[in-house]
Structures are given as C-alpha cells and as structure tokens.
Amino acid sequence: MASLCRGFVSFDSLFSIIPILLIVSYALFFSALLGARADAGIEKQILFDKLVSASDYAVKIGAAKSSGGGFPSGKVEPNLVPAGVDYSRLAGTLGARLRINLTIGFAEDGFVRSGTCIYRLVVYEPDMNVRKLYFCGG
C-alpha cells in the first residue's frame, strides 16, 4: 500500500514539474525576446538621433553657404546650400565622428536612399528652389 502511494506521488510530481518547466522555459525565452527587441529599438533611436545631429551640423555649417572669410568672422547662411558641395566628403567626416555609415545627397541628383533616412529642407542657391537634402545611415 505504501509503495502504491509513493507511485502516485511520483506521477503527481511528474505531471506538475513538466508544465512548470515548460512555463519557466517559455518565460525565459520570452524575456530574452523582449530584451532583444528593446535593444533593437534603442539602437534605432540612437541611429535616428545621430542622423538628426549630423543633418543639423550639415545644414547649419557643413554644407551651408559661407562668406566673408573663415570662422569666426565669416557669415554663414543656414539652410542655404551652394552648388559644388562635396557631400561624400562631408558624409565621410561626419560618419567617422558619429560612427555610422552616413550618406548625404539630393534625390534630384540621383541619390539612392538606403537604411534609415531623414531629410532636411534647404534652399539650393543656383536656382533658389526648395529641396530635400537626404541623410541616410546604417
């Protein structure tokens, strides 16, 4: 009789432990998934903020029209972009500083957008048209 009781206890434990193990393993897997998703979201936000910072420097100083000598006496026109700006060089410098793979260009000039992209509004000096200057990073 005592051995029969022990058998029932063993079966009882078995049927309790298996679901508990399954639930615990699922909970662990799901928490890891949530953590990975949060990390990806943070990385995406950081990249976006870096693009905003890089674009802000570019439209206000890096690619903006300057006249009257160099810094600090020179006058800079924010959001006014002259012709002949070397965007690949500017993207290389800013990308190296911010540790991202940055590309900059106008859609009108055949710029191919890839990765996360934002645009800034500028006036293109040669024709004084409003244009979207794209900043893409990854």
């Binding site: 903020d49 959001n79 934002i118 509004l121 006036v123 409003v130």
Partner: peptide, 21 residues
Amino acid sequence: VDDSLYMYKLMGDAKNVIHLK
C-alpha cells in the same frame, strides 16, 4: 522612434527657408 527633436529641427528649416525666400 521618437521624432519630436527631428520635427522641431524641421520647423526651424521651414522658418529659415521662408526667410531665404
């Protein structure tokens, strides 16, 4: 993604563009 800072910057762009035009 929180784009509030970006939208604020774009608003500044719009003001500057209107000024330049």
